[in-house]
Write a protein that binds this DNA or RNA. Structure first.
Lengths: 271, 271
DNA sequence: GAGGCCGTTTGATCCCGATCAATTGCCGGC
DNA sequence: GCCGGCAATTGATCGGGATCAAACGGCCTC
């Protein structure tokens, strides 16, 4: 049962934070405002947030946002592009744990300790908002509301991850892939992108690793879904042709509509 | 790929809260104090906690603590016995999501909504501490410290569940069962019980369901581990004979020492 | 445009765990 | 003690996905 993770050993390519000269310094003006947790706090708190928040220069593809074991310096929200989070197993294999789209907060699971339990890397050129950890903790101390928002986000992510846990390892390959596609579609739709035609920013290896399958199985499954006229695939481009049938495929192994499964519920992540 | 969940349709047996005449009304005096989140808050907050906390009469085996979809009325900590949490899939199958031992908080994932996302039922005669949800939220509003403790608990549970997610569905049966046994052993040890000889309070169906396997495979795997003189099994009683080898088995499929995997880190759950 | 690299697809075979089926063992009632 | 019922074990077979292997195709360099 070895070789699941067709290994990808990781090189680190660390860089300092470079602030962008971005003039758009208010959250309220951000295109993602309605998706961001910043929407849920009071004006005064948002003023504070606007003061401490840093918008980094775009990250290049494959550039890391943080490394496992590294000290937690900032709380990070994706602004554009996409991000992959992963862990490293003892053998040094990469294990993909989630994909993050604009508006989602990265690394909530690092809150407990002072260090990141995993890694985060840009899948394409991406931008982020960074809130220095100390500032964020100070805000937490002062604002019960912000606390509640964070508790809520974490609790949601918790319920979601648990749900994912219930199905991964119990579902067959076709179901996993169908759920994955629907999840991406739904999350993109939320960001006003075409839910029926989109580009997967991660490669097959990442998808396979994330779903607990092999590259070959993912590829075969995509081909099969295409053969059945449910989707059309060409490289990273995916078109959903028969959404209803795709949804049926997603319900095979275990019940559960895709409304919750593998799907962000508010401004949180995974998936 | 159907039939994973050798179904157990669930009957609800709801009862009102009955307070026990228990004189032990202070958390500080509780045998579980060192395991409980109550240890981490200030004296004043604990006074408040002592005021609002209710200790229920023992729950009978198979008695439910809460039902999915039911309104969140209390925050519950296990005092004695053991509890199983589960979800119900669309087909009506039970899906076991965790086991809870004394000192662990049940249903943290319900925090986001006002209702429980899943079910919780006593595996044997058990006692709990119940904090009315309103009181708890009031305390949260007033105490940044309590907020931090909860955020930390949730964040830990998050990291843990994510870790579990990474391995379940990627590990072979032997590894899953080994991890499960080591997890139970470790958690019991933390509660001053013999880590090398203990009783599994859940039946094979629950174990199989939790691990994403079938009853037969769990049974076969236990038999195999016994044949290899790693453990001794007799019904629900398990004895760990060769812990080192068992730990080796647990590392097969994917790296990761069992220190984090499937193991409660503080006063939280899963398992 | 030729060649090479790498990600992806497709094919053939194997193995683990699911499935189906039968047996054993445990416990409670009478 | 005997019997009925359910949990657990053990056996035989099947199938989905991993594994090994090869071919394909896009993209970059020269």
């Amino acid at each position: 049962m070895r070789g699941y993770y067709q290994d990808r050993k990781v090189m680190s390519k660390r860089k300092g934070l470079r602030e962008t000269g971005d003039n758009e310094t208010r959250c309220e003006d951000c295109a993602l405002f309605s998706l961001c947790f910043a929407q849920e706090i009071s004006c005064e708190e948002r003023d504070e947030l606007n003061r401490v928040l840093k918008r980094r220069q775009p990250l290049a593809k494959n550039e890391h946002i943080f490394h496992g074991g590294q000290q937690l310096k900032t709380v990070t929200v994706v602004r554009s592009g996409s991000v992959k989070s992963y862990q490293i197993s003892q053998e040094g294999d990469e294990i993909v744990s989630g994909f993050y789209l604009p508006g989602e907060i990265i690394g909530l699971d690092g809150f407990s300790g002072e260090t990141h339990p995993g890694f985060a890397v840009a899948l394409e050129e991406s931008r982020t908002c960074d809130i220095p950890f100390r500032d964020f903790m100070r805000m937490l101390d002062r604002s019960p509301k912000l606390n509640q928002v964070m508790l809520k986000l974490l609790s949601e992510e918790m319920a979601e991850t648990r749900e994912l846990l219930l199905v991964v390892g119990r579902l067959d390959a076709r179901t996993r892939v169908a759920l994955f596609l629907l999840s991406m579609s739904r999350r993109l739709a939320r960001r006003n992108q075409d839910p029926n035609q989109f580009r997967l920013t991660m490669d097959r290896r990442d998808i396979a690793n994330y779903l607990g399958l092999t590259i070959e199985t993912v590829s075969r499954t995509l081909s099969a879904l295409q053969r059945d006229d449910i989707i059309a695939v060409r490289g990273k481009m995916v078109q959903i042709i028969d959404r209803r049938t795709l949804q049926e495929q997603a319900q095979q192994g275990v019940g559960g509509d895709d409304s919750a499964m593998l799907t962000s519920r508010s401004a949180n992540q995974s998936g």
